[in-house]
């Protein structure tokens, strides 16, 4: 949420600075974009937490409903493993970015501290699913089916 307030404040600040004071804030747009990226990844883990990602339910009927509990636990286990793997690759990406010196446009500061949001988001998804696999009661139930 803070990310969005920062984004909006930067954009409005830019308008005010330009129209009222007459001096533009150089790079405000690119910082605003970074804010939106952070918000996007935080949103990914929020969406996972609330179970609001869409889920195709085409094969749900294949398993007798008595076994549903086990399939659902397996599902969370697989998702946890998947996000953990992606988190590992995200860490590797951030390390590469750090050693290559990826920079933000205009202001040239290094991007890796902001890119840390990616491993964080994936790891938090992994932990969430792992917790669901161990304790299914934690799950919030409003999954949409597609």
């Amino acid at each position: 949420m803070m990310a969005y307030i920062v984004v909006a404040a930067l954009l409005i600040g830019d308008v005010l600075a330009r129209e009222v004071v007459g001096i533009p804030i150089l790079g405000s747009q690119s910082i605003a974009v970074l804010g939106a990226i952070v918000a996007g990844f935080v949103g990914l883990s929020l969406a996972t937490a609330s179970g609001s990602h869409l889920r195709p339910a085409v094969f749900d009927g294949l398993v007798p409903s008595s076994l549903d509990r086990y399939v659902d636990r397996g599902s969370d286990l697989i998702a946890a493993a998947f996000y953990l793997a992606i988190a590992v690759f995200a860490v590797r990406f951030v390390l590469e970015s750090m050693s290559a010196g990826d920079r933000a446009a205009v202001l040239y500061f290094p991007l890796w501290p902001i890119q840390m949001v990616m491993p964080y988001a994936f790891l938090s998804c992994a932990i969430r699913h792992a917790a669901y696999a161990m304790e299914p009661a934690l799950k919030v139930h409003h999954e949409a089916a597609a």
């Binding site: 330009r18 007459g22 001096i23 533009p24 150089l26 790079g27 747009q29 690119s30 446009a105 205009v106």
Partner: peptide, 28 residues
């Protein structure tokens, strides 16, 4: 002087236009 002029969003272009006394507006 004080007219609005688009600059590329980079320090070189923007600071020069500001130095001329115009109002720099960095735009993509």
């Amino acid at each position: 002087a004080r007219e609005k002029i688009r600059t590329s969003p980079a320090p070189t272009d923007t600071y020069y236009v500001q130095a001329t006394g115009a109002e720099a507006v960095p735009l993509s």
